[in-house]
Every structure is written in C-alpha cells, then in structure tokens.
Design a protein around this nucleic acid. Structure first.
Lengths: 222, 222
DNA sequence: CTCCGAAATTGCAACGGATGAAATTAGTTG
DNA sequence: CAACTAATTTCATCCGTTGCAATTTCGGAG
C-alpha cells in the first residue's frame, strides 16, 4: 500500500473535474435552467445518478471550492497575531479568502469569470451563494470569538462579521449593478469595509470627518 | 358598482388566507419537507393547480406579507426629515418595518412564532428569506440614495445599508443560536446596529471608547 | 330573470430534479 | 486468479412546477 494515489481516486478526481467543467460550460452556453442534469451527465460520460454522488444538487457543482476557501479563511483567523486589532485581522482574513489557492487552482481560475456571471445572473445560484455566505458568517463569528478569548462578546463578534461582510458585499453589488469593471468593484468593496470600520456616523454631514485612507491602501498590498 | 368588494374578491381573499393558514399549520405540525402541496391544497379545498395562482411556489406562502412590509419601510425612507442624519433615518425605517401592520395583521400576528421557527430551521425557507433580504437591501440602498440627493455616493449608500442590516441580522442570529428569548434577540440586534453606527474600530481594546447608549434607547421608543 | 363575457378554477399531461434500493461493473488485495 | 469492496448503473418513484384545454363561477347588460 501507500504506493500512489491509486487508480480509483485518480479516476474519481478526473470525473469530478470533468463534471464541473462541462456543467459550468453548458450553463454558460445555453443557460442554467435550460441545461438538464441528464445533459451534463451525458457530456461527462456518467449516469445521471452518479452526479449526485459527487454533488448534493445541481447548484452545488458551481461552488466546488467554497469549502476549501472558507477553511483557509478560518485558518488565518485562528492565527491572530497578539495585540492585533479586530479590523486588521478581518482584513487579513478577507485577503486570504480572495487569494486562496486550492488543489483545483487551475479549474478555479479557468472558470472564475463564468462562475461570477452565473452566480450574479441565475436566481437559484444567487440564492445558494447567499445561503453559503450566511453559514460562513456564523463560522467566522465563532472563529473571531475564539481568536479574542475573553476580550469579545459573542453578539459583538457576530455584529462585527455581519457589518464587515454586509458592507463589502452590498457596496460591491451596487458597483456591479452600475456596470463597473472588476477593479472598481474591488475598490467599492474596500470603501464598504472602510465604512464598516469607521461607522455609519461618518456618513452624516454634520460631523463628516474624513477618515484616513491609509487603511484602504494597506489592504491592497496585504 | 363601487358597492362593495364584490363576492369574487372576497372569496379570493378568503382562500388566500386559508391557504396560508393551513400551509403554515401543516409545516409546523409535520415538517416542511414532509408536507406536500397536494395536502395543503386538499386541506384548503382547492386543487393543487390553484395554489400556484396564489403563490409562486411552495416557499412563498410563508412570506405572504413581505412585500407590504418592505413597501412600508420604503415609504418611511422617502419621508426623510430635512437634516436628519443617515443613522437616525435608518433607525426609523427599521422600527417601521417591525411595527408594520398590513391588511393581514391578524394572520401575521397569529402565525408569527411558527413562521420564525420555520424560517430559522428549514433550509429552503432560510434560503428564500436570505434572498428576499438581499433584494430588499438593494431597494433600501436605492431609496437611501434618493433620500439624500447629492449628499451620498451610491456605493456609500449600499455599504451603509449592508453594514446596518448585516450587523443587526448576524447579532440577532448569534443571540438566537444560544437560545435567547425574543426580547434578548432584539437587544442583540440593537447592539449590532450600534456597532455598525460607531464602527468596528470601537471594538478594539487600545482605544475602546464606550459609545453613549442614548441612541439605542431612543430607538426603542421611536 | 336570462344570457353573455370575463375571470377563476380544475384536470390532465409532461418535465426535471432528487432519492432509495437492488443489480452490475471495476479496482484492490491476498 | 479469486474474493472483497467501492463505485457506478439501472430502475422505479416522489414531488414541485408549468402549459394547456376544459369547465365552472361570478358580474353585468338587456
């Protein structure tokens, strides 16, 4: 034993990738709703039933590397540096989640644009994404709490994660809705994070204090 | 004409309510997945097909008054008082959405506890709720932008809504997950809003400035 | 009251996604 | 090669959802 990965697992890995690739490709070409599982399975040379031994449902094939990405983010959270402020740690976590490289790197990079388009435009996939993000936020809140033992209240940890993620997500969404290119979307997300950091108060004209932009700049090169 | 609502519409309203009531009741009694549309329809004395002329799908019957609530919140947003800070307006909007009374008041009050339990525990319903909330946030961001013409950037408006809603939602969720009763959940949501107002910075020990709690108190009696 | 047109309801058929169980195939091990 | 195990397939079935045609029900005009 221990000779190698074994033909069995290699084959499984191969069909898994084929399944992902053909599925996303078909979704992109002829639409999500217009693509049946039978088609995908046929194109990947497996039976329809087999699809469900690789993915829990039609939607899940699009989120093939989500679990790994989240685990990466959680690991960063666990490695909080002593004395590090909540805000900084969260920025490092966000950066890690974005730059993440799993075992499916090539696949992820290859399908990234199509995947984004699909998630944004197909209601079912958007719904699934929101649901996943929701669960992730719970995990992140838990991890944040563990990263600051005794220093943070559970409710505060949850609120922090909620404000952080919520602001970034919604800001990016607004940007996307008005047709901004990807780099402007990232800028919007950073602005969202900034607002979460300094609070909604900072938006009110009476005491509109211009926050230092150091933070946003640091974030990009982190 | 103009004599009354007409028998036709009365009947429609009646079956609509029956449908909602029996559906939620059955979901609660025997579980969401274990309840078929055929059962619901039979219990409400209509054909299965008719269900779909009242609701778009099985999940939607649970969110029967969402649209009305959202419209109420948007109306409050449109009635921004001159000079009113963003933070205050958002608090008024939140209060309005919660205290909202539609034409289905009785129904809503009667089913409120069951509905909350269902949405929290059934994945399909939780997903639908998140999706609805997402769409609502877009509308709120739009409305907020219109309420402060020329004073607010679209991205900032989105971020504000995202941080506000995200913090409140997640804080309440944490509270719920540890078994808090409803009144403590509301307190958690208020704490979440507070954190969104004053920013995540306020959580960091170095310069942990205790924010005045006036705002949270004002919110409850607004 | 009667009849007509519109609107709501129904029954029917079909499709796609999802699941369970038994049968079959293919890889691994001795 | 032979037995053992895991993966795949086949088959049957359930449920949500949709389109379409037939039918019932209500409202109003004469």
């Amino acid at each position: 034993m221990a000779g190698g990965p074994g033909l069995r697992e290699l084959k499984k890995l191969r069909t898994r990738r084929t399944l992902i690739e053909t599925a996303v490709c078909l979704f992109e070409r002829q639409g999500y709703d217009e693509t049946t599982l039978a088609e995908i399975a046929a194109a990947a040379d497996v039976s329809t039933r087999t699809f469900f031994s690789y993915f829990a449902g039609k939607e899940d094939v699009v989120f093939f590397d989500t679990r790994a990405r989240v685990d990466g983010a959680l690991a960063v959270m666990a490695g909080r540096r002593p004395g590090e402020p909540v805000a900084e740690l969260l920025m490092r976590v966000a950066a890690a989640a974005l730059r993440f490289d799993s075992e499916d790197v090539e696949l992820a990079r290859e399908l990234a644009p199509a995947r984004t388009r699909l998630i944004m435009s197909v209601p079912a996939l958007r719904g699934r994404a929101l649901h996943l993000l929701f669960d992730v936020q719970r995990e992140l809140a838990d991890a944040l709490l563990r990263a600051y033992p005794g220093e943070l209240d559970p409710v505060e940890a949850g609120a922090a994660i909620g404000a952080f993620v919520g602001a970034a997500k919604q800001a990016a969404m607004v940007s996307r809705d008005r047709g901004d290119p990807p780099d402007l979307m990232w800028a919007a997300a950073r602005r969202g994070v900034e607002i979460a950091m300094y609070g909604l108060r900072s938006l009110d004209p009476p005491h509109r204090e211009e926050p230092s932009t150091d933070f946003a700049n640091n974030a990009t090169k982190a």
